[in-house]
Design a protein around this nucleic acid. Structure first.
Lengths: 347, 347
DNA sequence: CTGAAAGCGCTTACAG
DNA sequence: CTGAAAGCGCTTACAG
């Protein structure tokens, strides 16, 4: 087939130019065009400019499937997750796409269940079948060493998003949840609370531990400690928040403040408080974690710790693709930050 | 390269078998293997069995990139959406993946902004660059005729998910929002409400119109009509729900029931009611639409209309891939259904 | 029902 | 710095 065949095709979908068309129009071999596509330094400046001009004029874009076949590796990135929170998932996807913009890579989604018997086999099949360029792993998949081992074994690039460094820097984006827990503690201590309750996430999430550690260290800074009688283990779910809140708010004396490990559980606490006639923030201060949409929907609106998930996703994509030179953000923008709303106040 | 080269590779990642390996092991040409892969009828029964056995033993899976290159079409499906609700997006993705399971197709996500100047050009680039097999369009992208025209022009398979038939059956999955609106009206009328308010979504979503039409027809069935003074136009957002609720609940006499076009706006209504000292459901009955997670988090929990988004997504994928023969669901499972909770009661 | 040849649009390995 | 040949793993078009 020759590019001159193009004329006369009446189907409206004009044939896309190929590397051969560009080579012919620019008067070079296709190997030289290939060098321009792949940013090889071994192309004379004028030759490069001429080829680039032809590519621009014709709107040429290399075919990712053909390139992938020759490279033995696709231009696809997989997002592997088992996180149940839709807002986290969507924000992460948006962030990854931010980081991938203009690269020609595309995003494949792969929700999964880590407790499934076929979890690892499915994941392996997904990656090998598509010859993925790499994957981004989010909690709790990112905290599973079997997954990291699998990636190493099959030679798949990966970045783990987790609350703390679990791997070499090249494979990690940290969310520093500990700092968020610390901010919550300082906030409550500064409001004068001394009898503070805590509801953690489940032990299967590393963030549960990190948020607690941060909270305890923040209290310690202010000369306080977390009374073990005021600590409960939840499951990051609304229902578990309700359950733990019933216990904590049934104590006598009860805590004057509660830090919940995430917004969902904080919403449960708020509901129990209301049912028990405990007014927030007058009788009880409440702080959550995540700053998902629900935090603004609650009445009173929820003081919480925001993790910039979209920004984290962007960083993860950039790290995976080796694009971080273009990163001009200050480090602070990716750290958890306290958002003060109506649910917290002085003792 | 020969398959016998495989031994000795020490990198742990054993070379995948190719169509040539299968052909050699089965003692046939690769064209015949190709026929088995593509379920061609022109293969002798025993030959097919022998080839299939070799494929099973070796764990052979055809390379989608190589197949895609030869087919001039990838094995990728795109989800194109501009829906702002994370739960909708995630459920839709899960449903699409349900419908694609076992087919070898994968899901690419493409969030977009319909109001962007480059919206159509970006979409076209995305589809052509990846040579997508097809796309699933959800509201409000699915309601944009320019998009349908573009798909026809570039010859891309597509399925539109929308509240009402906007296209030929092969390109449509309907969600029948009208039926949901009707169910809400019947419910409120049966509870004895005659002075009912309505808050619609924005005119840019076809569902706004359909839900209202259904609501009006449901009222009409019970000999009631929607008083135009009790109707407001919202934007499917929490804030717009608050705004419209302030107006409706400030009327004298005020409505004894309100049907909000979605759960987000219903959450806004509930907040205003609470601030005004109006008790739900004693002083005001409230019904939403969607049954997103927030419906169960509210106090009182929200009576609402559930659209089975995940099931709809599964159907959309099956229609796109031509797999509907395997559909054994009853039609009713995909229809909107009223979920009665605490926010609605007798006048 | 089966196969040898050519091609999909790129890159690698080699040569100059 | 540039190019001709062979190959990536499949399918199409043709022949038998």
């Amino acid at each position: 087939m020759d590019a001159s065949d193009d004329k006369g095709r009446g189907d409206g979908a004009r044939q896309r130019p190929t590397i051969n068309d560009i080579a012919r129009l620019a008067g070079v071999s296709k190997k030289t065009v290939s060098r321009v596509i792949n940013a090889s330094p071994y192309v004379q400046k004028e030759t490069r400019a001429r080829i680039q001009a032809v590519m621009d004029e014709t709107g040429y874009a290399p075919d990712p499937q053909a390139r992938g076949l020759a490279f033995r590796r696709s231009f696809l990135i997989g997002l592997v997750y088992d996180n149940p929170n839709p807002q986290y998932v969507v924000n992460m996807q948006l962030g990854l796409l931010d980081g991938m913009r203009g690269t020609g890579f595309e995003l494949l989604v792969h929700p999964c269940r880590r407790d499934s018997d076929s979890f690892l086999a499915d994941l392996r099949g997904f990656i090998e079948r598509q010859r993925l360029f790499g994957v981004v792993l989010t909690p709790s998949v990112s905290e599973d060493e079997r997954v990291a081992d699998l990636m190493a074994e099959i030679g798949c690039a990966y970045v783990r998003v987790a609350s703390v460094a679990l791997d070499q820097p090249a494979h990690m984006i940290e969310t520093y949840d500990r700092i968020g827990g610390q901010a919550a503690a300082r906030h409550l201590a500064d409001l004068g609370h001394t009898r503070v309750g805590f509801i953690s996430g489940p032990p299967t999430f590393r963030s549960s531990f990190e948020r607690r550690e941060g909270f305890e260290s923040g209290l310690a800074e202010r000369g306080l400690r977390l009374d073990p009688d005021l600590a409960r283990i939840g499951a990051y779910t609304f229902e578990s928040g309700i359950e733990c809140a019933r216990e904590l708010l049934g104590l006598d004396p009860r805590p004057t403040a509660i830090f919940a490990g995430n917004d969902e559980m904080a919403a449960g606490v708020l509901q129990v408080a209301r049912q028990m006639g405990i007014t927030v923030p007058q009788d009880l201060s409440l702080v959550g974690f995540d700053d998902f949409e629900i935090a603004q929907r609650l009445l009173p609106s929820l003081t919480t710790v925001r993790t910039p998930t979209r920004e984290i996703g962007c960083l993860a994509a950039e790290r995976l693709l080796g694009l971080e030179a273009r990163d001009d953000r200050t480090p602070d923008e990716r750290l958890p930050a306290l958002i003060v709303r109506q649910s917290s106040g002085p003792v």
